[in-house]
């Protein structure tokens, strides 16, 4: 299992992160200084690291504005930021994942590869777990169709 995380180049405006920050401010939740948004793609099945690298480079990442990082676990690194990850519940159609699955057909891969996606938000600042949960529930995820997990920044 691989997970590929795409991030906006640090010198560029992360408009999608900023929009979330504005929502957090509007809800008067204090402590969050900045938000970075990263789409995440999960691949499981018969795949090599080289294949996943090619897919990340050629398909998932914009060569000018984005970077990618590949991890072999789905553990979230929370040593610098608080992290909230949002993904669809089982049974809810993940249209983006279907699109990716279709697009990678041309990479001559095993047909049984499973693709899933998630949205990861890195929140800069000192925020309580309760506040993070509030952000997840009230802004980022709809618990009806989505699930989320929270990693509080390691102090």
């Amino acid at each position: 299992m691989f997970n590929v995380e795409i991030s906006t180049n640090p010198d560029l405006e992360d408009a999608r992160g900023k929009a979330v920050l504005a929502d957090i401010k509007m809800m008067q939740i204090k402590g969050v200084k900045d938000v970075h948004f990263c789409p995440v793609y999960f691949f499981s099945g018969n795949l090599t690291f080289e294949q996943i690298q090619t897919i990340s480079q050629r398909l998932l990442t914009d060569a000018v504005s984005e970077n990618y990082s590949i991890a072999k676990t789905d553990k979230i690194c929370a040593d610098k930021f608080n992290v909230i990850e949002v993904y669809y519940k089982k049974g809810v159609t993940d249209a983006l994942a279907l699109s990716v699955k279709k697009a990678i057909k041309s990479f001559d891969l095993d047909d049984k590869i499973i693709v899933n996606t998630a949205k990861r938000y890195y929140l800069d600042g000192q925020v309580s777990f309760g506040a993070l949960e509030n952000i997840a529930l009230k802004i980022l995820a709809n618990s009806l169709i989505q699930e989320y997990r929270i990693e509080k920044k390691i102090l």
Partner: peptide, 12 residues
């Protein structure tokens, strides 16, 4: 080869 891009609007 890609050398420029069109990225998300600043307004989000």
């Amino acid at each position: 080869k890609q050398s420029v891009t069109l990225y998300y609007n600043d307004s989000g």
